[in-house]
């Protein structure tokens, strides 16, 4: 069990929980929750820097040093392939050549549903430009396979819409994706509570990426711990292999012989 690592583009990780860094009250809470979650990979957004306001103002990187965590810069807020490509080139420059990224191209500001056509376009260019692309997508097995075929290093289908906390709405599609693909499949978006994460792992997902479920819990640090356990429990249940389901069983757990008369 101790050598059950998650391998993404040649990098290995002990934790299968990936977390976002948004929506926390402050950087201190961000740090505590992420530490508690045991996550080694953290997503960040790329935004305009505040210029000249406050020189002493602390930044996210001060609390989550790049030597300690693997950064996964994302393209949240991008609605076209061009915007996403531009954002990740800036991210690579910002992080001194770090090329592992999360690509997401959105299609609609109301639902934040991914635009898979633009996502495929952007992924093709980014891979040619030398990026290791972990890609957020819908739970469409055909698109997931196409994203793998063009060279994405991890496919990250949604469980349900970003920030919705609705859990896994289509386990059947996720199972098809997991069965069809060779690269890691990481459920990204929609997880609401620990059981959702455990179900994703029991289905055979290689990991789960979440942000809102932890950050907006009443106690984010306790929820981070719950998620860590759920991911580990789900993974072990998957590896252990569950019993088969039967409507009823003629095989009781206790011996049928030796009953008192």
């Amino acid at each position: 069990m101790n050598k059950d690592e998650l391998i993404i583009a040649g990098r290995s990780f002990q934790s299968r929980l990936l977390v976002g860094t948004g929506k926390y009250r402050d950087f201190k809470e961000t740090r505590s929750a992420i530490e508690q979650s045991g996550s080694q990979i953290v997503t960040v957004a790329i935004r305009r820097t505040n210029i000249g306001q406050n020189e002493k103002e602390q930044s996210l990187i001060d609390f989550l040093p790049t030597e300690e965590f693997t950064y996964l810069p994302n393209t949240a807020g991008c609605y076209s392939a061009d915007d996403a490509i531009r954002t990740l080139h800036l991210a690579r420059e910002l992080l001194d050549g770090h090329n592992l990224v999360k690509l997401e191209v959105l299609g609609d500001p109301k639902t934040l549903y991914p635009n898979v056509v633009e996502t495929l376009k952007a992924a093709t260019v980014l891979i040619k430009d030398g990026f290791d692309v972990m890609v957020y997508t819908s739970d469409d097995p055909i698109i997931a396979k196409q994203l793998e075929d063009i060279g994405c290093c991890a496919i990250m289908p949604l469980a349900s819409l970003i920030g919705s906390g609705m859990g896994i709405l289509n386990p059947w599609n996720l199972e098809i994706i997991i069965d069809t693909l060779s690269v890691p499949v990481i459920v990204d978006a929609g997880v609401g509570t620990a059981s959702d994460a455990a179900i994703a792992m029991e289905l055979g997902c290689d990991g789960v990426l979440m942000n809102t479920a932890i950050a907006t819990a009443r106690d984010p640090i306790m929820m981070a711990n719950a998620m860590k356990k759920a991911i580990e429990a789900g993974r072990e249940a998957f590896l252990a292999g569950r019993m088969s389901k039967k409507l009823y069983s003629a095989s009781p757990s206790s011996p049928v012989s030796g009953l008192i008369k």
């Binding site: 860094t21 997503t43 960040v44 935004r47 305009r48 820097t49 996210l60 910002l94 942000n211």
Partner: peptide, 10 residues
């Protein structure tokens, strides 16, 4: 010029 940094995000 655009000058960007890393901020919290999902």
């Amino acid at each position: 010029l655009e000058i960007v940094g890393a901020v919290g995000g999902g």
